[in-house]
Design a protein around this nucleic acid. Structure first.
Lengths: 150, 150
DNA sequence: GTGCAAATGCGAATCAGTCGCATTAAGGAG
DNA sequence: CTCCTTAATGCGACTGATTCGCATTTGCAC
């Protein structure tokens, strides 16, 4: 999504006005390699010299998530929601429970599984979220050295 | 887990005192077929005539989740956390985005996938959470009738 | 039984997220 | 380009789940 006018089209398609704030938010999310919190996003924008309020950030994130342009995620921890742009392929995440780093993962082998569950329960699955917890390479190594088992 | 003294052993093993409140909480979670919120649990206990405070419920749930005796889950919605007892086999969930019903699912076909990711990223996976969203049978049907697409 | 750290109760505090309302600005019509 | 409607925004107050401080109680090792 290098072409920024693309955002305008996406917003229009959803009957959302193409405001400069929404543009900035989408650009910031696009630029971010990992999911960010509303607050982080707010601070990022302020740093860029953009004058915006928290309410607007929250409201924009809500409506964008509702329209499926971005994805809202809740990693169990500090009970803060994180947001990321919806890319071509959806992603899953490896979350390090120690240093809290997040590694995005592209592959998703769950389509057959989902199909089977739909048949079994008469449930129509429209989306899913998979998060995996554990220790990233660095944290496992540092614990090995210090003698603490993961 | 019919044998309630089992709880005592589990707690002791984690260096937690075997208090009557923790017993009650574990029993209530054991009895519940689906994940419950702290508040629901609190009310359930009060109804049973157990005098307990919200802080205690929260604190007990926290420590039990930390010790891996129960599981804390955040379904994106009303930003309330849900808790359930950790059973033999872990579960996944089908969450209806309309009526909010939750269907637990036993099967978990992800072990190979997890293994592959561990190799690929040097990440040591200790747990995972999969939630699937969509429309349960009842809600899809009622929407079909009313003409609203899911 | 005694002693002491862990657990609890209570109410105050925190803090992400929401809301009401007045103001501003998209963007379609003319 | 200007006008007009209405969505979007800012601000500050508010909410509601969760946490915290501190005094009191209770489990349990000895």
């Amino acid at each position: 999504m290098e072409d920024k006018s693309q955002y305008g089209r996406m917003l229009k398609k959803e009957n959302l006005r193409n405001t400069s704030h929404r543009q900035s938010i989408l650009e910031a999310l696009e630029a971010s390699k990992e999911p960010v919190s509303a607050e982080t996003l707010y601070l990022t924008l302020r740093e860029k010299g953009i004058s915006i309020s928290m309410s607007t950030v929250y409201r924009a994130l809500d409506v964008l998530a509702e329209k499926n342009i971005i994805v809202k995620t809740d990693f169990t921890d500090n009970n803060k929601s994180l947001f990321e742009i919806k890319r071509e392929e959806h992603r899953h995440h490896l979350v390090c429970v120690k240093c809290r780093s997040v590694i995005p993962v592209m592959e998703c082998p769950f389509h057959e599984y989902a199909r089977a569950l739909e048949r079994q329960f008469g449930f129509s699955i429209t989306g899913h979220k998979l998060e995996m917890y554990g220790y990233c390479r660095k944290c496992s190594e540092s614990m090995d050295k210090s003698g603490n088992a993961p």
